[in-house]
Design a binder for these strands. Sequence first.
DNA 1: TATTATTGTTCCACTGTGCGACAATGACAT
DNA 2: ATGTCATTGTCGCACAGTGGAACAATAATA
Lengths: 261, 261
Amino acid sequence: MLERMRKQTTPDNQLQVDHPDGSGYLPGLAIDMVIFGFHEKQLKVLLLEYQNTNLLGLPAGFIKEKENLNEAAKRALTHRTGLHNIYLEQYYVFGDYSRFDPEPLRKILKSKGMNPGDDHWLLKRFVSVGFYALVDFTKAVPSPDLLSERCDWYDLANLPPLMLDHQAMIEKALETLRANLDRKLIGFNLLPETFTMGDLQSLYETILGEKLNRTSFQRKILSLDILERLEKKWTGGAHKAPYLYRFRQSREVAVPEKSFL
Amino acid sequence: MLERMRKQTTPDNQLQVDHPDGSGYLPGLAIDMVIFGFHEKQLKVLLLEYQNTNLLGLPAGFIKEKENLNEAAKRALTHRTGLHNIYLEQYYVFGDYSRFDPEPLRKILKSKGMNPGDDHWLLKRFVSVGFYALVDFTKAVPSPDLLSERCDWYDLANLPPLMLDHQAMIEKALETLRANLDRKLIGFNLLPETFTMGDLQSLYETILGEKLNRTSFQRKILSLDILERLEKKWTGGAHKAPYLYRFRQSREVAVPEKSFL
DNA sequence: TATTATTGTTCCACTGTGCGACAATGACAT
DNA sequence: ATGTCATTGTCGCACAGTGGAACAATAATA
């Protein structure tokens, strides 16, 4: 009984960085994750900071020899955010040879007191599968991995310089999110469980990068019959209090739709 | 002068199948291609047939150590169809461990007179990047690869049993094509250079799997202002001859659009 | 109690779509 | 030649969906 209760989620951060051949993982294949959040009308991205290197980059992951690719991505996502059951989707494979540049990783490993040879598995060419995830900013608890010092949210609109091609990876993820936003109902994954119509609209406006008509937006969203209206919210604002809504469907599944905006 | 004229497209089929470690290629990573064609109101897929094995499968490819992933896919596509400048897009990475099954490949290698050991590189686990391509059926010249006996078109609506998870790969490719069809203008890549409005409509109907209204379809497509009307066609049919149209834009680039159907 | 900002809702003009109608046409049969 | 027939190009109309103005309701503040 007690054993069962004490049982922790495996830390599973036991990446064999010091083992030069990376045994146990598929060689040459990595996962890079763009984890989106939304807070104060701004899109956020979760980034890792590596100590003493001035380097910032996307959370990454590797695939175990007998593990599913998508499971490996879920695993990495859970470790960075503490969250389960998150909207997560492959969006592109970054496979250009020109991506290959071992220097940032070498710098990071050295900062960890290692002196990896040129044949260290982390310094070889990687093809990287890009995933993006949509999380509830208020629930995520960012935590760094073995190689990094900090894990924190950054404003998407104001990103610092990133290592390798991570900037381009984020841009492509945002493109994909934009394209999917009006075909699937995935936006809700970025909001807390209850929200106002204004919250939802400003989320859509931020992602799409354009103003939307207030009445049309409200009418369209409500006509989809996916929201449940709750009691009034009482904001601190000097104005009529808006209703709170809750998303009806399981927040996981994307409802296939004709473009609805 | 003559040398230049005689110069052939590199056969480049020199896959080192007999070399047990597959040197020169990225390990554990493959490309599988769903090549779509359209003929007589039917969607077609290009499949490879392996002699004496009763096995059918999708054209595949591997990535050279210093090659871009997308270039490797282009290379494979060109070798199977003889065509350059074809619409080609990544659509999903198949990375489940359960895909791993060396038996079909072993059978194929044996049929080629080889007796590969369990550690032969082609018998290891592969993660496969799925691409789909849209080609002009009338221009493609299917040709098999080193391991296969024949390369031919098959009716998508009536597929024979396929090896591994290739059936699911095709289904997912079709889903993606469907979703993209009304956001980008990629359908034209499946038609010859000139076509009638009826051809175009039946292409859309076949891909989407539903009847479309004739007058609305015509009005919508023409309003996009992407077609050039040519002289009349004269069909053998006992009815009014339809106009021929030609796609204006480069047939390569997908025009981003709000969903237009 | 008045003011102010925001929200919920209604209304109306405009656009786009589904669909029926009809004339035009090209091949074939008679 | 003439009539038949299937298909195509085009028009018109009813209907639905959208953008945007307008207005009343309301919650905090002055």
